[in-house]
Amino acid sequence: MPGRVFRKFRRGIYTAIDFADPLTIYFLPLILGVASIALPFIYVDISIQSAGIIRTVSEKTEIKPLFSGHIHSWNIKENQRVHRGQTLLVIETAQLDSKLKINLFQQREQRRFLSDLNALTEKHIEKL
């Protein structure tokens, strides 16, 4: 029978939907149109509990260092779990190292100046 779809309900009863019927031609698209318009307004609360971690493919976590340099060694592999405080990369920073040495030298020099000033002020106070 062309234009008919049979459905089986409980107890073995078959019913037929006639798609050539004018009521079906107008009523079925109307129901589908109303349902598609109502879809954005339907809210379904979904709750999932899982012991693992589910992540989307598009989720990416960017890691940005505070300074630039060349990567000396990797301590991780792709898709490996990491923990807080774990060293991920070792960055070789020749420029930063030289700035650090200069800064340490300047700190030592300033400490010597301060100790000299303290010594001079103590001698001056003792004379008074």
Rank of each mutant, 00 (worst) to 15 (best):
I102Y: 00
G69Q: 11
R108S: 09
E62R: 15
P40E: 03
K77W: 00
G12Y: 02
H72E: 09
S73M: 08
Q106V: 14
L88P: 09
W74K: 15
E122I: 02
L100I: 06
R55P: 01
G85C: 07
K99A: 08
T87W: 00
I125Q: 12
K123D: 08
I17C: 06
H72V: 03
E62V: 09
P65I: 10
E62Y: 11
R81S: 14
I125A: 10
Y43Q: 15
S73H: 12
E62H: 14
L66T: 04
L120M: 07
N75M: 01
L117G: 05
L23N: 15
A38K: 13
S98P: 02
K8N: 14
S73I: 09
E109R: 09
D18C: 08
D97E: 10
I91R: 11
G85V: 01
D21C: 06
I42Q: 12
V57Y: 06
P65A: 15
R108D: 01
R7Q: 10
E92K: 15
V90I: 10
P2F: 01
H124Y: 06
A119P: 01
R7M: 10
G69L: 07
L114D: 04
K60P: 00
R4E: 10
Q49K: 05
K77S: 11
T121Y: 01
K77T: 09
S73G: 08
N118E: 05
M1Q: 07
E122Y: 01
E126Y: 02
V90K: 10
I37W: 00
L66W: 00
I125L: 03
I53T: 12
I42T: 14
L28S: 06
A16C: 06
F6M: 12
G52Q: 04
D97I: 12
I13G: 03
S98T: 05
K127L: 06
R7K: 13
I42W: 04
E62G: 12
P2N: 14
E92P: 03
G52S: 06
A35P: 03
I13P: 07
I71Q: 05
M1H: 07
L128S: 05
K127W: 00
F67T: 12
H83Q: 14
Q86Y: 00
R7I: 12
G12C: 05
L39Y: 03
S115Y: 01
E59L: 10
N79W: 00
Q110R: 08
D97C: 09
F67I: 09
T121S: 13
I17F: 00
H83E: 13
I63F: 11
R84P: 02
F113N: 13
L104T: 06
A16S: 13
L32H: 12
K101D: 11
S50R: 09
D21K: 14
A20Q: 07
R84Q: 06
G69T: 13
Q49T: 07
G3S: 10
I91K: 14
I63R: 11
L30F: 01
L114F: 02
S47T: 09
W74S: 15
L28G: 12
L23K: 15
K64R: 13
D18Y: 03
F19W: 02
K8M: 14
R112P: 01
K99I: 01
R4T: 12
L128I: 07
L114I: 08
F6P: 07
L39R: 15
D116M: 09
F9A: 14
E62M: 08
G69P: 05
R55V: 11
N118H: 02
R10D: 05
H70Y: 04
L30G: 09
S50F: 00
K8D: 13
F67N: 11
R55L: 08
V90E: 05
E59P: 03
G3T: 08
